[in-house]
Design a protein around this nucleic acid. Structure first.
Length: 914
RNA sequence: GCCCCGGUGGCGGAAUAGGUAGACGCAAGGGACUUAAAAUCCCUUGUCCGAAAGGACGUGCGGGUUCAAGUCCCGCCCGGGGUACCA
């Protein structure tokens, strides 16, 4: 002792903070302004904390410690996103129950986080796997189940903005008379089809290796995000959440959030809103088999009759069986539609297929069905398809055009059918060339147009002529009476006219799909849902919910966690008394055996932190109003479209149902950049470049690790690790220590140069410059520059023979959010008996910052030639005179004509010469 | 392909509104202290020419605006991330 002994110091202060509950958030009654600062809570993996975790955590910790010193009531909680596959995979291998593995991993993470001295309010700790927590996850699921989306409901939000569309109780869903007439069962089924949580048997992403179905967001290039296993498309009954109902609000309500533009853009692209029109194409009686049997005259007569009928009755919500409905963003190219394509999964495939095409169509659809998404993308360049044998009538030209089946049309987007305009769509162009379908140009490109890269890429040569599609906007041609109109005008006019004749309607589409919400795993939240069984024990398709009072639905006891390799859920292997029960009315019920995905728990944990011990509600409304929204949320950019979209969706549903008071949960979002290994590559075990925080803390201490992670570079930036960089900040802390403490003494004794003297002007100026810089930098989350300013202060002050306490004390306070342990120790050495964590943050005095003399650059023709020293506040004329008096300047001006002089007071002088 | 974000010494990075490019740290070289080492302290360090004084060139490349450009505008090149038949 006492060199800078971080081991002793850090454990001492961590104990002190724990014993004194230093960082417990105060109640709303404190009257202080609140600040809610949140970290993305970790999945407690078996490998323990990664150096990437403390990056964001240190940043939020600095903001929190700083904010407490500025008098804020700070909520800074931590918890565990602890459901998930790895614990279950471990159970498959070892037989250890996932709960046991999870608890061990949490203990490791907690030890590591405590070792870093983060100022969390640990009394608010929670884990998504706690029954007390997932009880409320299940409860929120029941809210989703009990809600339908009313797209016409008009209302005004708490922000005063009026909106259309809102989630409402299912009991308020209007039931059509014919459904009511059909009885209560029909009504229940009707309601079930409108809930935000519903069962669907659409094709899903089944991953045999993981033994579960995955959401679209979890599939990357046809492989699972976790483990890169192949994913197949299979039809399965699955729980879906109707996130698409909220697509518009999820996109538009991003506007007022203080988020990085790149993340907003990412979410908007993911939602993928496009506007256009739905158009109906007449196909006549499609049950006749081959339409080539039907005379063109009779079809066109039918077309005329249909048009007349439509003109009278208007656009129907359901298209009926005699038309093919398509979605297009370019209704203005309707005259150029020379064929149509339906997806292989389209319901009309069978009835549109003629006898002679039947074999070819069946074969094609079978192949398409077994193709995974990966196969579809790999083959993207080669367009495939098959003719149905049927034709439709182009509603504007009256031409009969062939209907094809091709897998470049997706059943899940739009109506699953398109009108193909080969002259103005790259994909249609390729397809038409391949299958020799006519190409009619209906848009004249603007003057001087050159094909874009991808337009040129699909160009072909026909009879010595180069044929290129044009996908841009231009002027209408070959479009009857509309020739000459601009694309935008034509689009608007045609949509309106077709709408008046009942042939089309403006429409909006989204790339966003409904959220596949069920998994076949054990280690996820069970659903609070029962399926009714008939007398033979078969499901009737009707459902019941668990009573809210009976929640949580706990996991059944299980010993064997091996997946069967089929999409059968793990929970289906549970004991009979978990799986079945008889309702009071005598109906036999079987439990839902799917479980919720890992995203469920993270959709609302920030709400539970506000009131984590509440046993009667998921959150107390008063506490919700006080703490929400989250003022600062820091985490990795990998959650840009998953967690952050899901959580916003749940929050909006909870808002619509009156359970929370804000539309958006996260006001300000910041993404920390990834930390790479020392070799500049992503850290991974296989690359052998993983840095373990435990080792760094052992060798240099927690304060050094914290400081280094903040000093590396801007928070948002990707940056490589450097052990000698850690050593650098460690040396800085040693220097700070020796600046104040006598390191030859036995105990912690102040350095002989630490005095009670009045500070010198230069010392005061240095201090106040540092206070200003550090304060501004913290507010900008620019921690690397804040630290370099403290280094400058230390380099200066260490050379002073008198180091007044009145200068050192504020500096220790500035340092404390970054390196809290050493700061507490120095604060105590300076004679204070309690923690500095609630000391008022130092204020700077503008008057003390003013320099007496300034060094001003003098340029000749924009090139720096000299530097002059002038009194601060000297005006332009004085500045010029001072510059002209300078010897070096005179030398440069000798014999030259000065054309112009620019003198900016306090900045620079520039002589323009000839 | 398309959409974002970035490109500054040997390295990580600084540079409020266009106004001294390279703060701070690392690495490297030299020196002091020491029997020695560690630790610590001091000096040098963008490139090129020059013994020095000094000069020229420098923020991915090419143009432009301006008294003045790392910063603003136009056209490219390179790297990273997102997305991928979304009609």
């Amino acid at each position: 002792m006492p060199r800078y002994d971080f081991k002793r110091i850090e454990s001492r202060w961590q104990q002190y903070w724990e014993q004194h509950s230093t960082f417990q958030a105060e109640s709303p009654a404190s009257g202080k302004p609140k600040l809610y600062v949140l970290d993305m809570f970790p999945y407690p993996s078996g490998s323990g904390l990664h150096v990437g975790h403390p990056e964001g955590y240190t940043a939020t910790d600095i903001v929190c410690r700083y904010s407490r010193m500025t008098g804020k009531n700070v909520l800074h909680p931590m918890g565990w996103d602890s459901f998930g596959l790895p614990a279950e995979e471990h159970a498959v291998k070892t037989g250890t129950h996932p709960r046991e593995t999870t608890e061990q991993n949490i203990a490791t993470f907690k030890r590591q986080l405590k070792m870093l001295g983060f100022s969390y309010d640990w009394s608010r700790e929670l884990a998504t796997t706690d029954p007390d927590y997932y009880r409320w996850t299940q409860w929120i699921f029941l809210q989703l189940f009990d809600t339908w989306y009313d797209p016409e409901h008009e209302w005004t939000g708490p922000d005063g903005v009026s909106r259309i569309g809102r989630g409402r109780p299912i009991s308020e869903l209007p039931i059509p008379a014919e459904v009511t007439a059909a009885g209560t069962e029909a009504v229940r089924r009707y309601q079930d089809r409108h809930r935000l949580a519903y069962i669907s048997d659409a094709p899903v992403n089944w991953c045999p290796a993981l033994g579960t179905v995955l959401a679209n967001e979890e599939v990357i290039d046809g492989k699972s995000e976790r483990g890169s296993h192949p994913v197949e498309r299979v039809a399965l009954k699955q729980w879906m959440l109707r996130i698409t109902a909220y697509a518009d609000r999820l996109a538009s309500e991003l506007d007022h959030l203080d988020w990085p533009d790149s993340i907003k853009l990412l979410q908007r692209n993911w939602i993928g809103r496009s506007t256009g029109a739905e158009v109906d194409f007449y196909i006549g009686n499609r049950n006749k088999g081959s339409q080539d049997d039907v005379s063109p005259e009779s079809v066109l007569a039918g077309f005329d009759a249909w048009k007349a009928e439509r003109a009278a009755s208007g656009w129907p919500a359901e298209p009926g069986t005699d038309v093919l409905r398509v979605y297009t963003t370019r209704p203005d190219t309707l005259y150029g539609a020379t064929y149509m394509v339906i997806a292989p999964e389209h319901p009309f495939v069978e009835s549109l297929t003629s006898a002679e095409q039947k074999a070819a169509v069946t074969d094609y659809c079978r192949k398409a069905a077994t193709k995974s998404d990966l196969d579809r993308t790999e083959l993207a360049k080669d367009k495939t398809g098959v003719f149905t044998g049927s034709r439709a009538v182009n509603p504007v030209s009256g031409e009969r055009i062939p209907i094809w089946i091709a897998d470049y049309v997706l059943i899940s987007y739009g109506t699953g059918a398109i009108m193909a305009v080969p002259a103005h769509d790259l994909r249609d162009f390729e397809f038409a060339v391949r299958f020799d379908i006519p190409v009619i140009q209906v848009v004249q490109p603007p003057e001087g147009w050159e094909p874009s890269k991808d337009e040129a890429a699909v160009a072909v040569e026909v009879d010595g002529q180069k044929l290129v599609p044009f996908a841009g906007r231009g002027t209408a041609m070959n479009s009857g009476e509309y020739n000459g109109l601009s694309t935008d005008d034509f689009k608007r006019q045609l949509t309106e006219q077709l709408n008046n004749s009942g042939l089309a309607q403006a429409a909006v589409n989204y790339k966003l799909r409904d959220w596949l919400f069920s998994r076949q795993r054990y280690w996820g939240e069970p659903f609070p849902i029962w399926h009714e069984l008939d007398a033979d024990g078969n499901p009737t398709g009707l459902m019941r919910t668990d009573d809210v009072a009976s929640l949580p639905v706990l996991h059944p006891h299980m010993d064997d966690f091996k997946p069967a390799g089929t999409p059968e859920p793990m929970l289906a292997k549970a004991e009979q008394d978990w799986l079945f029960r008889t309702a009071d009315d005598g109906t036999r019920l079987k439990r839902e055996t799917n479980s919720m995905p890992q995203w469920a728990g993270s959709c609302w944990y920030f709400l539970r932190f506000c009131d984590n011990k509440n046993s009667t509600a998921f959150i107390d409304p008063e506490l919700e109003k006080y703490w929400m929204p989250v003022d600062l949320y820091i985490g990795g950019a990998e959650h840009a479209v998953l967690h952050l979209l899901y959580a916003r969706f749940w929050h909006k549903v909870l808002f619509d149902r009156g359970h929370v008071s804000m539309v958006e949960p996260f006001q300000k979002l910041v993404n920390q950049g990834m930390i790479l290994g020392e070799n500049g590559e992503k850290m991974s075990k296989s690359r052998g470049n993983v840095i373990n925080p435990d080792d760094v803390v052992r060798d240099y201490g927690a304060d050094s690790l914290r400081l280094y992670e903040m000093f590396m570079g801007p928070l948002e930036q990707v940056k490589p690790w450097s052990m000698s960089g850690v050593e650098g900040v460690y040396r800085f802390l040693g220097k700070v220590w020796r600046m104040m403490v006598d390191d030859r003494a036995e105990d912690v004794v102040l350095h002989a140069h630490v005095t009670e003297d009045e500070p010198a002007d230069t010392q005061l100026r240095m201090l106040h410059k540092t206070i200003r810089a550090v304060t501004n930098d913290i507010n900008k989350l620019s921690f690397n520059t804040a630290i370099s300013r403290m280094m400058e202060f230390t380099n200066f002050m260490s050379h002073e023979d008198s180091r007044p306490k009145s200068v050192l004390e504020p500096f220790v306070l500035l340092l404390s959010p970054f390196a809290p342990h050493i700061a507490e120790e120095l604060w105590s050495a300076l004679g204070h008996s309690t923690t500095l964590s609630r000391e008022p943050w130092p204020q700077y005095d503008e008057a003390l910052l003013v320099e007496d003399t300034l060094e001003i650059p003098v340029q000749i023709k924009g090139k720096l030639k000299a530097r002059i020293h002038v009194p601060n506040g000297l005006d332009a004329a004085g500045l010029q005179a001072a510059a002209e008096a300078d010897e070096a300047v005179q030398k440069h001006l000798e014999g030259k004509t000065v054309v112009k002089v620019i003198a900016v007071p306090g900045r620079m002088v520039n002589f323009v010469i000839r």
